[in-house]
């Protein structure tokens, strides 16, 4: 309870020691129920992971200090290298395309038209649908010989359409398509909220000055959407790096290791190989990437807003 004592000594003369101590106690009592769970279930495991990545452990035999061996192993492991590369590809496409689509959709939906709510609902719905159900139907749509997507491709003149989730070459493309489809509604809502926050007087002023719709968007709205864009890109990047459920439900990382991204690699090292050290080392790499992106983007935002 070092926190409490500090408060007592540092409290201003006006409030008095007892009042300050009481305040701390009350404040702590509000936070405690949640904090206990949070501490035991999140913080301790996170610290434990930090310890595990420098050790060799299978969960039963005594733990052995391994120094940087786990990192040496994964950095030279071809599957890991590929996983990092594939995660980067997956992220680049997911972030770019989802951002553009969600912005375009938000602009389209941001109109005073009858029944516009129905369109918004429809586009947003995939986001709340379960990954398992969604994966089940997309697997059938992407089916090689009979699936709807290949039927359409054949009708369009593609003689030999890809095998999608059955093909090591095309599985990642399929996964990216489904990922974009599922998440674009969420980011559309964020853009939509930002668009609706723009004072209509600004846009009207542009209209009076004779700016075309195109100019009104790029000269007036786009600069005001900067914060929203920043948030969308950041969330998209982090979520793409973490992406797991949907890909697992679609392909379980296969065929072979075709869609084994970083999270899937961690999962395999954990619950297939039961190699705690290597799993945690790979997890730390994922964490480091996410942390660096977050810090970089916050820096960038600060710079831009100065």
């Amino acid at each position: 309870m070092a926190v409490k004592e500090k408060t007592a000594t540092l409290s201003t003369p006006k409030s008095g020691m007892t009042l300050s101590r009481r305040r701390t106690l009350v404040g702590v009592s509000f936070i405690t129920p949640n904090f206990v769970g949070f501490f035991v279930l999140n913080l301790i495991p996170i610290l434990f992971a930090l310890l595990l990545c420098f050790n060799r452990w299978d969960g039963y035999n005594p733990m052995e200090f391994a120094g940087l061996d786990n990192f040496k192993y994964i950095f030279t492991h071809k599957v890991f290298q590929q996983a990092v590369f594939k995660t980067a590809v997956f992220t680049a496409f997911s972030v770019g395309i989802t951002m553009l689509l969600s912005l375009g959709l938000a602009v389209l939906i941001n109109q005073k038209l009858k029944g516009i709510g129905i369109f918004r609902t429809a586009i947003f719905f995939p986001y709340v649908a379960s990954v398992v159900a969604v994966a089940a139907v997309w697997q059938m749509l992407f089916q090689k010989d009979m699936g709807l997507i290949n039927e359409v491709l054949r009708a369009l003149g593609v003689a030999d359409p890809p095998g999608w989730f059955a093909s090591t070459k095309w599985a990642l493309v399929g996964v990216i398509v489904v990922n974009i489809w599922k998440n674009m509604g969420y980011y559309m809502i964020i853009y939509l909220a930002a668009l609706q926050d723009i004072p209509s007087s600004l846009v009207e002023a542009g209209m009076i000055d004779g700016a075309s719709a195109w100019q009104r968007f790029w000269r007036i709205k786009w600069p005001l959407l900067r914060n929203a864009t920043f948030f969308v890109v950041m969330m998209l990047t982090i979520n793409s790096f973490k992406s797991f459920d949907l890909i697992y439900a679609l392909t379980e990382g296969g065929p072979g290791t075709a869609t084994t991204l970083l999270s899937q690699y961690i999962y395999n090292q954990s619950f297939v190989s039961w190699d705690y050290g290597r799993a945690s080392a790979a997890a730390m790499v994922l964490f480091a990437i996410v942390a660096v992106i977050t810090l970089f983007q916050f820096r960038l935002e600060k710079k831009l807003s100065d």
Binding site: N42, I46, F48, A49, K242, S263, I266, S280, V290
Partner: peptide, 15 residues
């Protein structure tokens, strides 16, 4: 901790 991916601690948590 919101920024820490679940994959980072899912194994320690399980253990």
């Amino acid at each position: 901790t919101i920024a820490v991916p679940w994959q980072v601690y899912m194994l320690p948590q399980y253990t």
